[in-house]
Design a protein around this nucleic acid. Sequence first.
DNA 1: CGGCCAGTTGAGGGCGTTCAATTAGGGTGG
DNA 2: CCACCCTAATTGAACGCCCTCAACTGGCCG
Lengths: 236, 236
Amino acid sequence: MNSVLANLKIDCTNCRLQNLCLPRGLSKQDIQSLSDLVQNDTLVHKGDFIYRQGDDFYGLIAINAGSAKMLSTDSEGNQDLTNLVLPGELIGFDGVSTNTHQCSAIALETVNYCKINPDKLDVLCNQFPSLLRELFSHSCEAINESQRNPSHKNQSANKKLAQFLLTLSNRLMSRGFSSTEFNLTLNRQDLALHLSLTPETVSRLFSKLHKQKIISVSGKNIQITNLEKLKIVASE
Amino acid sequence: MNSVLANLKIDCTNCRLQNLCLPRGLSKQDIQSLSDLVQNDTLVHKGDFIYRQGDDFYGLIAINAGSAKMLSTDSEGNQDLTNLVLPGELIGFDGVSTNTHQCSAIALETVNYCKINPDKLDVLCNQFPSLLRELFSHSCEAINESQRNPSHKNQSANKKLAQFLLTLSNRLMSRGFSSTEFNLTLNRQDLALHLSLTPETVSRLFSKLHKQKIISVSGKNIQITNLEKLKIVASE
DNA sequence: CGGCCAGTTGAGGGCGTTCAATTAGGGTGG
DNA sequence: CCACCCTAATTGAACGCCCTCAACTGGCCG
């Protein structure tokens, strides 16, 4: 056994997600400062809440391993699955402005995450403008994503699903996973919620894409067998 | 004439939108610092671009008077009207992360706006963490708005329009305008784009709400004549 | 083996779109 | 100031996509 490796603490300075997550664009010195403020390696399991809508601001969270869904319920009780969260992505912005979380974050499988506590965030704000600038940049990016993401607009259901699969494929690839074969951690119900469709429609569309030999579907296991055709479907 | 009033420079320290716009939540001293960095009173006219998608980051902009629309075109050429912008609201976040604007901001009528230039923004970041913190908070809020705003999800067209009108009514009220009678600066085409509907459908729905005596429509002039019923329609 | 829930598949109906025609409104030149 | 034009807005009819409701299948766990 390699005791040196075994005892090596994983933190921001040696994290494999450094270029995707918060350290992105920071100096070595700043990454070290950040690392000292980050609480690493919290583990939660499938179905666990990372935080709940209505909770006091819990902190900014970087998903390190696993995936999560962002769920929000409006005053009428309607649910909306706003996002699927992958490793290297930040969540928690929904609690910054009002100090109360506007969404729930729920683990879709075993999830390992890092966290900057609210009090540490204040330290950041006062001592490390460059980090705060980076946070600001991250949050602005999130605005762009959510406003420009075409899947939330009324298009054909077919197109929405194809676009979702393409976007997911790209996001997985940039995280070092296979872009052509993956396990969809969202179930049909959740995916339907996310795309504003019914589970029946999602199921039918999966079958249709399968018959067209564009993807291969077996439950949650998805293979993209004809990327070009999938792109054509996504652009109608 | 009152020459004292005539010569009084309008800036953040005496702006009527102080509680809505960027100074919100800042100390008097910070507001003064902010004010020194803000370029006030730029005037543009109907149809003018405040900035264009693809432009270098132009700065953070607060709409002081008038209204604007945020338009974004994706790689396929599909347009999306992401937002209607009212006085006291901030735009420009779409240029922060990549330093290139992801949307165009277009004046819907004569618009007066204030601006923090990109280089001044860097000054802010380095010297006034409290301002940056406020900016961060603003951008996080924008995320919530765009993700939680129910009008961008698939609901009945009727409900989407009713919700849009209710939200607009509230936003106008908090800005000191009438909440029951207003001039819709968006035309039917733009409104349809925003709600992901066709102009024909929007027009039909306006007529329907009019016949139901819930609103009174005359071109761009809208009166809400039965707020309670409108709320019922919005919640289905 | 039986029960349960997620997922799939089928039939029918409703709502928004599409295509087309008509009306209203805003700007320009005589 | 009015006649004209061009675009925006309205209204109508028919189609098509997705939803609803329902039945069925398959996998997992007791």
